[in-house]
Write a protein that binds this DNA or RNA. Sequence first.
DNA 1: GTTCTTTATGTAAAATCTGACATATGGTAC
DNA 2: GTACCATATGTCAGATTTTACATAAAGAAC
Lengths: 199, 199
Amino acid sequence: MTTLGYAILGLLSREDLSGYDLTRRMAGRVGYFWSARHSQIYPELARLEDGGYVTHSVVEQRERPDKKVYKITAEGLDALKEWVIQPPVPRPTRDELTLKTYSVWLADKAKAAQLFREEELRHEKQLAHYEELRAWMEGEWRENLTSTNSPEFASYATLRRGISYEREYAEWCRWMADSIERRELSEKREKGGSEEKGG
Amino acid sequence: MTTLGYAILGLLSREDLSGYDLTRRMAGRVGYFWSARHSQIYPELARLEDGGYVTHSVVEQRERPDKKVYKITAEGLDALKEWVIQPPVPRPTRDELTLKTYSVWLADKAKAAQLFREEELRHEKQLAHYEELRAWMEGEWRENLTSTNSPEFASYATLRRGISYEREYAEWCRWMADSIERRELSEKREKGGSEEKGG
DNA sequence: GTTCTTTATGTAAAATCTGACATATGGTAC
DNA sequence: GTACCATATGTCAGATTTTACATAAAGAAC
């Protein structure tokens, strides 16, 4: 079983869904920390059905094409429960912006500062969106959040990770942009202001 | 050009290295936020040389096998400088522990709490290691860190990202473990206080 | 009526990455 | 002397992921 398989089972454990529904979910919610295109999802669903983890039934629709709605089986639910408590396989963290940072000493400083400023904004926007969701959840789900046995708690916990992740990232981007701007300014001042720059 | 190619150029812009050296670097430093095995690095070096981004010379050694030492070219350096200030291609964030969290409502709570406790420890250890490096850098590189034009500043900036990333992750794991433990306790209390379980 | 969009399900080619296989030098441990 | 380890460079099979190709129903826009 692949991680993608468990991601799909995680969604199907909450509600029956079609491949198309799953594809949309994989661009939100779970998709904050896992994602897949439909070209990965359809074949994976076939493999899951082969393995007995899901079943499907065809639902005929009037004003839309027919769809296959997938349901998790008892075996699928057991596999998912077991997977959840296993330590995650260590995967290397790949982050292109941090990799670029390693070579930032070579870069045009004005453009570099702008890059980090833009990324700061991007992460702050995502953070603001998450904070809205959080406020909504804490209001709407007040009772459900008191029990770790509710899917609502699980969604909330995932969102909390998203919030602290985005906040941390935005703050680091701000520190980077500030650092570059501040030091460029002080280096220009040292040179005497009206001079041109050199190597 | 692939991101891996730029990761290699980033290392070669600081010092000439062999494929073997690069492989070791990719498991540290840069490797904190990008990594590759030697089976990826050797073919990529050949492609980089094909594209004119690097050249190599064979260095004969007495007590070890000969090695190919790679050097970045002017074209390679230009490409790297340009890449650094380009916005990173948006990649989906994949994090298996957070994905597991989405299904934690199904899990055995004692085992789930233990999982997050272990992950908390793992990230705190990594954090402690990074903090040591930070203290060393701030002492040893005091002068170099005042200029954004030094590779030392770039290394330090990358490390700062590592530090805040690990701190954020450890804190969230702690919050998760605490939440699960606290709520499990209160639910047991509600069921009838005659059986007392620890703290 | 033709084009565009949303819903809906697939396949295929290519890129990327991991894990295993393969070879060779020379030092140290037993 | 032989087994193991660090150095050193490669290939190949397979898994994973992305991008593009492909089809089809029905409504909405022009």
